[in-house]
């Protein structure tokens, strides 16, 4: 597998590099290749998310941090022996663990047997949507996704507690980090509406194709990050003021929770979407739509808030 070999090369290069800018770039490439690998392994939703999050958001956040902390790494003073031993033992344990593992692609493997067939056979019927990943994500294991939304929300709270979102000369309207680039401005102006439209499509089309609230939230946030980079943080903040973001994030998780509580008051278990309508499958549809909306709102606002917090930070003197 060529992809896997490339991944190994990138990982090795990332270990050796002292220029952190290159390391971050390598990591983004690594994520993108992983996403390609996921496509190959039939995980389209995961590939989509990995590309948007790993290659996109994580990379941008890391670069924003490097702007503040400096680009070069010092050579470590201690030797690599002890870490190598720890890594060696851990790796050996993992390899040992895979020796009895079912072979890749084996349809008789336990993973394919017990729980999974119901998702594949009944998912499209019981939950009423062709994308089984969305059905499992938002309905069968909707509570995990509820927790996941809280994880993102928690990260937002943590970053705001640590950094807050600063106001300064750089964040006033009309200032840009990269200067006035005419070509970029024209191109980005044309691209942004497309990104916004695509985000909406991904948000509401998750039942049928790859995508959903999480991916849509990230894409929407990227549109603003792009606008921010080209037209300046100040202008971006005029469009979406930072003080809205944490409130919006809170509203998103509360929307998800409210759907759950609604079922509770209707006498059904928490997050049982069939309580939302007379016809259970119809209720599932409505429930998934609403919780995905909540996820999208939270992810969008928290990702953007974290970006503002890092990119708007003044350099320590």
């Amino acid at each position: 597998m060529v992809l896997l070999a490339f991944l190994v090369l990138i990982a090795l290069a990332a270990i050796r590099m002292r220029d952190l800018f290159i390391v971050v770039m390598l990591f983004s490439v690594y994520s993108l290749m992983t996403a390609a690998l996921f496509m190959d392994l039939d995980a389209v939703d995961v590939a989509f998310t990995e590309a948007a999050v790993g290659a996109g958001v994580t990379g941008v956040l890391m670069l924003s941090t490097l702007r503040l902390t400096g680009r070069w790494e010092r050579r470590p003073s201690h030797g690599p022996l002890l870490p190598l031993i720890v890594v060696g033992i851990t790796g050996a344990a993992l390899i040992y663990g895979t020796l009895d593992a079912p072979l890749l692609g084996d349809p008789a493997a336990p993973v394919q047997q017990h729980v999974a067939p119901r998702y594949i056979e009944q998912g499209p019927v019981e939950v009423g949507m062709p994308n089984m990943v969305t059905a499992v994500l938002a309905s069968y294991r909707g509570f995990d996704t509820f927790g996941e939304t809280f994880v993102i929300f928690t990260a937002g709270i943590a970053v705001l507690l640590l950094l807050g979102i600063q106001e300064g000369p750089e964040t006033r309207p009309g200032r840009t980090a990269i200067g006035d680039q005419l070509v970029l401005r024209v191109v980005v102006k044309m691209v942004i509406p497309l990104i916004l439209l695509y985000a909406l499509y991904v948000q509401f089309h998750g039942d049928f194709g790859a995508g959903g609230g999480f991916q849509a939230g990230v894409i929407l946030a990227t549109a603003f990050v792009l606008y921010d980079l080209v037209f300046g943080e100040g202008d971006a903040r005029l469009v979406v003021p930072p003080s809205w973001l944490h409130r919006l994030g809170a509203l998103g998780v509360l929307l998800y929770g409210a759907v759950g509580l609604y079922a509770l008051f209707a006498g059904k278990p928490f997050l049982d979407y069939s309580a939302l309508a007379h016809d259970p499958v119809h209720g599932q549809h409505l429930g998934v739509l609403l919780v995905e909306l909540g996820v999208g709102i939270t992810v969008f606002s928290i990702v953007l808030a974290i970006f503002y917090a890092l990119s708007g930070r003044r350099k320590a003197s």
């Binding site: 709270i157 409130r247 994030g249 809170a250 509203l251 998780v253 509360l254 929770g257």
Partner: peptide, 17 residues
């Protein structure tokens, strides 16, 4: 059984609001 966790969990965004 579920409220014992959900109430403090959902109170967190309420605090933020």
């Amino acid at each position: 059984a579920v409220l014992v966790v959900i109430v403090p969990l959902m109170s967190a965004p309420v605090c933020v609001l």
